[in-house]
Design a protein around this nucleic acid. Structure first.
Lengths: 340, 340
DNA sequence: TTGTATGCGTTATCAA
DNA sequence: TTGATAACGCATACAA
């Protein structure tokens, strides 16, 4: 009649099953190194008591957790969802569990989350982009926690990454847009302060303009935080000015969808009056109206390869190696030649 | 010149600072119970060594983790994002950390995740909906882990929840739709098998039809898994049949957006030819074209209240109590009277 | 204010 | 195949 039974431990299971704790432990971790008879007894005891192993104790004794942490800027939209999903699925195949944390794009929070996951015993970490204080990398090193950067690829960085070339991807798109006759360009960018992807994408446009003999300085840039509403407002701001662009690049699809929405509200036709270009090719891009012309990022492939690389490192000691993935341009209905 | 320094522990910090481990521990947990002088020494040592507390050891010694687990069906879309964000923000205020896990709407995976989070020492759990095997609740009880159900409110259930009445919400909407003259109704539903929210929403429509003297049996129901594409296909299926409805309810906004897309592709005008109704009122609903008429769910409020309830339980021992939140109907542009 | 000593639940080494 | 036992890193009751 105890109103509060204690939480069952390995020891309780051992007692109930009439064996030693070592045997119970083996039963859980190396089932074949234990006789069928004992195994049955133990499993029965586990079931009867509702035993669940204590992760902390296990981690401490085994010195590993089979857990890999993923730290992403935001869960609020689908940008990272598909890639993470693939990451998790692949990890699972190798016996690892994923732990996610988000940072709201704030470096302080990211550091906090990194420490938190390391402290929780993450065997490795998945990070987005290269941009962070060197102290963090030092910390990870002294803690012996390998980290893999994704969503970006920077040959110059000595940090290994599995990602794509943000600059080049955007540059390709911009080059096409310029070929179509667009000269007056604008960009709705995510904040570039602590975001190397956003920065690289902007640089890509500059580069394309330069290559085409257009003065990069003419690019109208509006930086804004994330969200459909923010994209809409930025678009309104740009189109409310004297010098109206004929093509508006967006740092990602979410901002682009916001832009499309505001365009509709303002009575501006896309792509007749202005072209709008996204980035990422998330599901939203297909269902936007009009369907969005954008840069396709191989999110699933990225997540999967990242998971494989990390698993192989942890399981077989195979070092991480830089992997560059290809992006492609997806033409839908929001981009038209200038002499439409 | 060691290529591999060991990970610093409390003991290392103590040695470096020339104090005992107890003092270092206090320094971390009760900074004011230690003299400024020693505190400085200790903090310096921590900094110098790059020390980070071992969560597992700490959890084991302290018998709590200040961590609350949240288990949601999916992270792939924004349905749960806003609520979770609010949940996390509020938890943070009370000193708790949120751990998220997702289940892909699969009961087996949910059970696995529940065990995993409990084993990780979660002090409490946030769950979505009531629907799960009683064994799970028993397990949580023997483990002493309180769980709070959200996204649903069932007065009949003895499990405490902070949520809204899915059936009533949908019933209200359906009643309005019927008042507008619609008699031929259809529903694109999420799979109802292990989803009490989806089930309740469907029941709500049945109820409204019955109240209005319409035979519930006439409701055309298509169940589908989650996603914009799935919603589109379901809509196509419904509109391809002989008996075309004049109003199509959707189990959530994501499915509805898919329906809108397919309608456009099929040359069907919304709401002139057919009305489309969503559920949830996520950001997507506002930017859909046409903007979606839907049921607004107070996601942020729900997350916040859930966090408060759990914090108070854990911190002050105040028991959880059932909380019913109100939903509202949001009229945008996808619903029109039948004699349009 | 500080230190000592013990225990938390598990794994893993070593014997049996 | 099994059992005894020593870590693992930390918090805390108690003593100083």
């Amino acid at each position: 009649m105890n109103s509060k039974r204690a939480i069952p431990t390995l020891h309780d299971v051992a007692t109930t099953a009439g064996v030693s704790t070592a045997t119970v432990s083996r039963c859980l971790n190396f089932p074949d190194r234990v006789s069928p008879r004992t195994k049955d007894k133990v499993l029965a005891a586990i079931e009867a008591l509702g035993y669940s192993p204590n992760f902390g104790a296990r981690a401490m004794a085994a010195r590993r957790t089979n857990t890999i942490g993923a730290i992403i800027p935001t869960m609020e939209n689908a940008i990272f969802a598909r890639g993470l999903q693939a990451f998790q699925e692949e990890l699972r195949l190798h016996g690892f569990t994923m732990l996610v944390a988000s940072t709201s794009y704030k470096p302080e929070i990211e550091e906090e989350q990194i420490r938190s996951l390391v402290s929780r015993g993450a065997d490795a970490l998945l990070l987005i982009g290269h941009d962070r204080r060197p102290e963090i990398y030092d910390f990870l090193e002294t803690q012996g926690v390998p980290a893999l950067v994704t969503w970006a690829f920077d040959a110059a960085s000595h940090r290994t990454s599995v990602g794509f070339d943000n600059q080049r991807a955007m540059q390709e798109m911009a080059t096409e847009v310029i070929k179509l006759g667009h000269k007056k360009l604008a960009l709705i960018s995510a904040e570039t302060a602590n975001n190397d992807r956003a920065l690289a994408r902007r640089t890509g446009i500059y580069q394309a303009m330069e290559d085409a003999g257009l003065p990069p300085h003419d690019l109208q840039v509006v930086e804004t935080s994330y969200g459909i509403v923010e994209g809409a407002n930025a678009f309104g701001e740009i189109m409310g000015r004297g010098q109206k662009p004929t093509a508006v690049f967006c740092g990602n699809d979410v901002l682009a969808v916001g832009a499309l929405r505001r365009a509709r509200e303002m009575g501006i036709s896309v792509p007749q009056d202005v072209s709008v270009i996204g980035f990422d090719d998330i599901e939203l891009a297909q269902v936007a109206y009009p369907p969005l012309t954008t840069v396709h990022v191989p999110h699933r492939e990225m997540g999967q390869k990242a998971a494989r690389a990390l698993s192989r490192l942890l399981l077989e000691g195979i070092p991480l190696e830089p992997t560059l993935l290809k992006t492609t341009l997806v033409y839908r209905n929001t981009l038209a030649p200038i002499n439409f």
